[in-house]
Write a protein that binds this DNA or RNA. Structure first.
Lengths: 140, 140
DNA sequence: CTAACTGCAAACGTTTTGCAACTTT
DNA sequence: AAAGTTGCAAAACGTTTGCAGTTAG
C-alpha cells in the first residue's frame, strides 16, 4: 500500500479532511506519503529541505502542519519515545513495535493483536483510542 | 498496597537492586513511594523541595536518580504524553488509562486487559515489554 | 481586499551535561 | 587518597509562539 499519489490526489485528500491545500501542506503530505514511514517533524523537515523543487518549508511550518494533520485525522501521532513524536501516515487502526535501541518503529495490523478486558472509562470521558506498543531491544 | 516503608526498608530495596543508597536516592524513593502516583521528575522535585527535612536534592539529581531507578527496575517510565515522562513506582505488569485533557494517568491491572496475537519479534531483538495506553478525553 | 497562511527568530519547558565540590571507605 | 555521588548553572533538545510579511480566494 505504498501510496504514490499525484499532486491532485493529495489536494483532494487534504480538502476532504477540511484542510486548505496550500503549497507547503501539499509538500508535507506528499513527502510523508512517499516515505510511508514513521518520521519525526525534524526528519521530515530534513527530507523536504533536500528534495529539489520542494525547498521553502520552514521547520515551524512542518511542526504546525503535522499537528494540524493529526488533528484532522490525516496522520497519527505515535508517542513511543519521550524525545520525539513520530507521525504515521497509516491512519487505519494498528499498533506498533518499537525498538528502543535503534529507534525503529514498525506497524502491526490491528486485527493481528487483540485487546480485551478494557476497563470501563472514567465517568465523563470519551474513548480516544487504544495504543499498544511492543517494546523490543537489540542486545549490544 | 500503599507502601509506607521505613527508611531501613527503602535502603534495603535500593541495595537489593544494586543501587547505592545515598541520602538523595533514599529521599527520592521515599517520596515516590509515599505519593504512590504517577509523577514527572519536575513534580517530584517540587514535592521534595516542600517537604520539611528533605530539602537539598537538586533538580538534576532528581532526573538522574529517576533515570537510574528506571534502569535498575525500581520504577517504570510511562511514556503517554510527549511533553513529559511519568515515573510509576508500581513495577508489576499493568497498563494505563491516560486522560489527554487533564493529564491524569490511571493504573489498570495487567490481568484485567488481555493482549493476544502479538507479532513475532524482529530477528535479533528481545522483548522488553508491552505497553497498553487507553487514551480518553474529557469533553469541553 | 481580506482572511488565511507562512517564515523567521525568539521563547519555552523538559531533560542532560560538565565540572568542581563533597562525601564515603 | 580514591571512587562514587552531588549541586549548580549552562547547554541542548524538540517544540511552540508572536508577529510581520506573503499568499490566495
Amino acid at each position: 500500500m505504498v501510496s504514490h499519489k499525484s499532486k491532485a490526489e493529495v489536494i483532494d485528500l487534504l480538502a476532504s479532511h477540511g484542510v486548505n491545500p496550500t503549497t507547503q501542506r501539499i509538500i508535507v503530505m506528499q513527502t510523508i506519503l512517499e516515505r510511508c514511514a514513521h518520521l519525526s517533524a525534524e526528519e521530515l523537515y530534513q527530507i523536504i529541505e533536500q528534495s529539489p523543487g520542494r525547498r521553502g518549508v520552514a521547520l515551524a511550518t512542518v511542526y504546525n502542519t503535522l499537528s494540524l494533520f493529526a488533528e484532522k485525522g490525516l496522520v497519527r501521532e505515535v508517542i513511543a519515545d519521550p524525545s520525539r513524536v513520530f507521525y504515521d501516515p497509516n491512519t487505519s487502526p494498528h499498533h506498533h513495535v518499537y525498538n528502543v535501541t535503534t529507534g525503529e518503529l514498525i506497524d502491526v495490523d490491528a486485527d493481528r493483536i487483540k485487546v480485551s478486558g478494557l476497563p470501563s472509562l472514567p465517568p465523563g470521558t470519551d474513548l480516544e483510542g487504544v495504543d499498544v506498543i511492543v517494546r523490543v531491544r537489540s542486545p549490544s
